[in-house]
Structure formats: C-alpha cells, structure tokens
C-alpha cells in the first residue's frame, strides 16, 4: 500500500456542504456543513436518532445524500469512488468479522478485497499489534467481546487508511478493551490520521479530540475547537439535548 498521505489532492480532507438525507417524510440529516483538516479528530455527540450513523454512512459512501455535497479525501462521496474507499476505515458496533474463520483468515480475506500485497506478513503484524497473535488459529466465535473488537480494529486499519470513521466504538466494551481502543486511537491521531467519531461518552470523547460537534435532529447544534470548552458546561448542554429529544419522543408515542 502506498503512503496514502502523498496522494492527498487537497486540504481539507473532509468537506461537507449542506448535506441532507431525507426520504419522503423521514429526515435523517437536515443541512450539515463542516470541514476537517488532515490529522484532526472530531467527536460528534448526539442523542439516538440524531442522524450520526447516517452521517458516517454517507461519508463512507454507503448511502447517497438527498442533496448537498460531501468530499472525502478529495473525492465526491456520492457514487462511492473505489479510490475514496481505499482511504477510509470504518469501525462500528457490528464487528464485521466471520465467526467461523480464524483471525488470520479474516484479515487475509479483507486484505484480498483491498488488493493488498504480502498479505500474510501484513496480517501477522496487524495481529501482533492488537495482541492476538497467539490465538491466530482459533475461530473468531470463541473470542471474547473485547478480543473481537480489537480484531475488528485491526481489520479496519489493515489497509492503512488516512481517514477513520468510528460509529460509537465504545458501546458494549469492557474497560480493558476500551483502553486498547483508546490507545490505538491516540497512536493513530499522533500519526496524523483524520478521525471522525460519534459517541455518547462525554469525558472519553472530549479527552482525545481536537474538535467537538453536537448533532441534534439532523443538524449540528454546535461545532467548536475543543480548547476553551468547559467540560461540565458541555455535558449540561448535551444532556439537555438528549432530554428534549426524549420529551419529543414521548409526545409522539403517547
């Protein structure tokens, strides 16, 4: 894999303009605009149903936006250009691993799909990095949740993406696994990878990032640099947003 940084055509790496996603009456995104420079780490907070997952799905080329544009690594996301997909890695709460295969086979399969060379060595190093090398020949379904999540990180960064999307990666992890994930993220951040993460965990999310966004009802209610943000104040604002949302849901269902 060539060093992905050199092929970067332009800054900013992620450029989102008036992004909307709606179908009939369902409105997941309602006009989001923001930029992310290379090496920046953005944490997106927001209650359930705010459209965070939709945002990540559009940015990774899984879903088409209804209107607006988004450019990732210099490519228009609509249509999911293969070169763009090479630049991104996605970690979500689904592990995206085959339970009947061994970790090694899983990584080799995904490596083949990316057209990577010298796969076996690459896969072994990746397994070493996440500390799963001793168990490389056991089927994945015998692993614990934390181990699976570590393997899933290894899978997502196997092709050395310059941009990472994380969709609530901390959900359901024990302390050890989430520490491994955090360490990984910090390393990647130091290596100047651009990271966009959605999360509920305020302290954890604020700790690592450069920029903070609060997404409510498909819009960014807040988008600032992390410096100068009072954690308690932000927390208060976030909980207000969640409560309002739950209040609205309550009316709808009653």
């Amino acid at each position: 894999m060539v060093d992905s940084q050199t092929s970067q055509p332009s800054n900013p790496v992620i450029e989102v303009r008036k992004l909307r996603k709606e179908f009939g009456v369902l409105k997941a995104l309602d006009g989001i605009s923001f930029n992310l420079e290379r090496g920046e780490f953005l944490s997106v907070f927001g209650p359930n149903g705010a459209g965070k997952t939709t945002l990540i799905k559009i940015l990774s080329g899984l879903t088409r936006p209804s209107s607006g544009t988004a450019r990732v690594a210099g490519f228009e996301v609509e249509g999911g250009h293969p070169e763009m997909r090479r630049e991104i890695g996605v970690i979500s709460h689904s592990t995206a691993l085959y339970g009947d295969l061994t970790p090694l086979e899983n990584l080799i399969f995904f490596g083949k799909m990316y057209g990577l060379g010298r796969l076996k060595e690459l896969a072994l190093t990746a397994l070493e990095d996440v500390g799963l090398a001793p168990r490389r020949h056991d089927p994945v379904r015998t692993f614990s949740r934390g181990m699976i999540q570590r393997l899933s990180i290894a899978r997502a960064i196997l092709h050395d993406p310059s941009i990472l999307f994380l969709d609530e990666p901390f959900t359901g992890l024990d302390i050890q696994a989430s520490n491994v994930l955090k360490e990984n993220l910090i390393t990647l951040h130091n290596k100047k990878r651009t990271i966009l993460m959605t999360t509920h965990d305020v302290s954890c999310g604020l700790e690592m990032c450069d920029k903070v966004a609060l997404q409510v009802m498909g819009r960014f209610a807040f988008f600032e640099d992390v410096e100068g943000i009072n954690k308690d104040k932000f927390e208060e604002m976030y909980f207000d947003a969640v409560r309002d949302k739950q209040f609205a849901m309550g009316i709808r269902h009653s």
Partner: peptide, 15 residues
C-alpha cells in the same frame, strides 16, 4: 399520508 407524517415530525420534534 406523507404530508401528515411530515407535519407530525416537524411539530413534535422541533419544540
């Protein structure tokens, strides 16, 4: 039906 759903969403979420 679409219109009603849209109204429901807008009025009940945007307060």
């Amino acid at each position: 039906k679409d219109e009603i759903d849209r109204l429901k969403r807008e009025t009940l979420y945007s307060s």
